[in-house]
């Protein structure tokens, strides 16, 4: 008897993506689709696409979707969720989108405890516009707008989104994961599932930060990019859960 052990998640369209070889976005899309399938929620999901390389995520995930303006996805998610509290609402955002132009929107969505789930893709660079410095660019990293390498005296310091948001009472689940190796991918999927469960259980704001490869704009081969995540990114962006519903304390409880 033949048993199918690997297939395309049902909530993914049967198409190939436009992402570069070795890009992290495709892996994260697949994890999203797998979690949606496993939770059986595809008919009540609303997604919000960002501006960035993943703007076309709606060509890959087969659910109701909005396409946001740059950085504004959490505000759109808020409007949608307030109208349809029963929908499972997620945003998918890059680091330029979320940690630069959209900082106000993400911080206040978290502070309000909006019951939404955010997939935050940190690739330490602006992918779509061709490799400019992002707020998450690490010290010493060369980009097209920090050609001599990011120097704190000139370009300041990287923004650690997960740690920052975990300080807010409205945030219920905050984790940072990576997708450059299978063992990390398995952990990433677990975290994403927890984030969605947090929303399904009505516990408040959840966010998973994915460290993600952008070989094209890092100027590396896909293999080199995998090593770079391990050697350079993880030391700057430690992995783990920064907040869980169990550790979450509201002001009243504290």
């Amino acid at each position: 008897m033949l048993v199918k052990v690997f297939e395309r998640p049902k909530s993914m369209f049967p198409v190939t993506t436009h992402y570069c070889p070795g890009c992290g976005h495709g892996i994260i899309h697949r994890l999203l689709a797998e979690v949606i399938d496993e939770l059986g929620i595809i008919e009540r999901v609303a997604g919000i696409a960002p501006v960035g390389c993943s703007v076309l995520i709606y060509n890959y995930i087969n659910c109701d979707m909005y396409e946001a303006a740059h950085g504004r996805a959490p505000a759109i998610a808020t409007g949608c969720k307030r109208v349809h509290p029963d929908l499972i609402v997620f945003t998918y955002q890059g680091d330029g989108d979320l940690a630069s132009i959209g900082t106000a929107e993400i911080i206040h969505a978290a502070a309000r405890g909006e019951n939404i789930t955010v997939l935050f893709v940190n690739n330490a660079i602006y992918g779509m516009t061709g490799g400019q410095m992002a707020p998450t660019t690490i010290i010493g990293q060369k980009t097209t707008t920090s050609p001599n390498g990011r120097a704190p005296g000139r370009e300041g310091y990287p923004v650690r989104v997960a740690e920052m948001l975990a300080t807010l009472e409205g945030a219920a689940y905050i984790a940072r994961v990576a997708v450059h190796k299978p063992k990390y991918i398995i952990a990433a999927k677990k975290a994403l599932r927890k984030a969605f469960e947090t929303q399904i259980n009505g516990l408040g704001f959840s966010l998973v930060e994915f460290l993600s490869q952008c070989p094209t704009n890092w100027g590396m081969s896909p293999q080199k990019a995998v090593d770079w995540v391990e050697e350079k990114m993880i030391p700057c962006y430690p992995l783990g859960e920064f907040k869980t519903p169990e550790t979450k304390k509201t002001v009243e409880e504290a």
């Binding site: 759109i76 808020t78 409007g79 969720k81 911080i107």
Partner: peptide
């Protein structure tokens, strides 16, 4: 909202939700 920008995108989200 935290700003008029956020407010108008909340409108976008709610209007889009019907």
């Amino acid at each position: 909202a935290e700003s008029e920008i956020a407010a108008i995108y909340m409108v976008f989200g709610a209007a889009g939700a019907g």
